[in-house]
């Protein structure tokens, strides 16, 4: 089985975020970075399928700055066979349609039997990329997958729906699915495999070679919602309270004027 798994590097979500100077994204300064959690399940699933089907090959793809290679090396240490790094310093300004178009452009004509993505990224969280890629490549796209097993020539998938309901889906290959948290238990890369991954192929492609579309939407502002004012509790005897209340209403509102 020829598998493509797409991953993204995101900040550690425990970090304190600040809005960047451009006002449309967060400031990346001093943040710790890791593999998007949803994508870790994708890598694990790809490797598990590879282990089940002899002769399989797993390509991991990541769009990002040079730093993104860190998580690609982790994916290779987890068992992916080769890496494709799409070098893009502007990755944070790309909207989902552009990201999907880059992936689709790369994957087209490569004969992938299966494309796996995370359900969403932990930072932008659009949950669009996977399904857009499926559409662009004219593949059946299955979202929110929490179970995956081989079923003849295809896959038997389990989807998580709202309210604790599950759906079983069968799909023939080629296909694409997006991973929900809990799909499997991502392995820890072992030390020997981390060392072996150093020797695996990791090629870099310039984003300009793959990005053939223009963005169709733009984020105009990123902001922290203002906290709603807390309630005010007045204490004292009733007469005093009434005076205080009237004072506040006069001062802060127009209802008594």
């Amino acid at each position: 089985m020829n598998i493509l798994v797409c991953i993204k590097q995101v900040p550690d979500m425990e970090a304190k975020f600040a809005v960047a100077a451009n006002g449309v994204w967060y400031d990346p300064t001093d943040l710790a970075w890791r593999m998007n959690e949803y994508d870790e399940y994708g890598v694990e699933q790809a490797v598990q399928l590879k282990e089940q089907v002899a002769g399989s090959d797993v390509t991991v793809l990541c769009i990002g700055t040079d730093k993104a290679k860190e998580i690609m090396k982790k994916a290779l240490a987890m068992g992916c066979d080769r890496g494709v790094h799409v070098a893009d310093d502007e990755v944070f300004s790309r909207e989902p349609y552009e990201i999907a178009a880059i992936i689709a452009e790369f994957a087209r004509d490569k004969g992938f039997d299966l494309v796996i993505t995370g359900m969403q990224s932990q930072d932008r969280g659009s949950a669009q990329v996977g399904l857009l890629v499926a559409e662009m490549l004219d593949l059946p796209g299955i979202s929110t997958v929490v179970g995956c097993s081989l079923d003849g020539d295809g896959l038997a998938l389990s989807r998580e729906l709202e309210g604790g309901v599950r759906a079983k889906v069968r799909v023939n290959l080629p296909a694409l699915f997006t991973c929900q948290l809990g799909l499997n238990k991502p392995r820890y890369p072992t030390l020997p495999n981390i060392m072996k991954a150093k020797k695996k192929e990791l090629i870099t492609i310039a984003v300009a070679d793959l990005l053939k579309v223009a963005g169709r939407q733009a984020t105009t502002a990123l902001f922290v919602p203002q906290k709603k004012g807390g309630g005010l509790v007045l204490e004292g005897d009733p007469a005093e309270l009434a005076d205080k209340l009237i004072g506040i209403l006069k001062e802060k509102t127009t209802v008594l004027s």
């Binding site: 290679k69 090396k73 240490a77 072992t190 981390i194």
Partner: peptide, 12 residues
Amino acid sequence: DEQKQFAETTEQ
């Protein structure tokens, strides 16, 4: 990057 991965595997 490899050393950072050793650390991550151990920590996890």
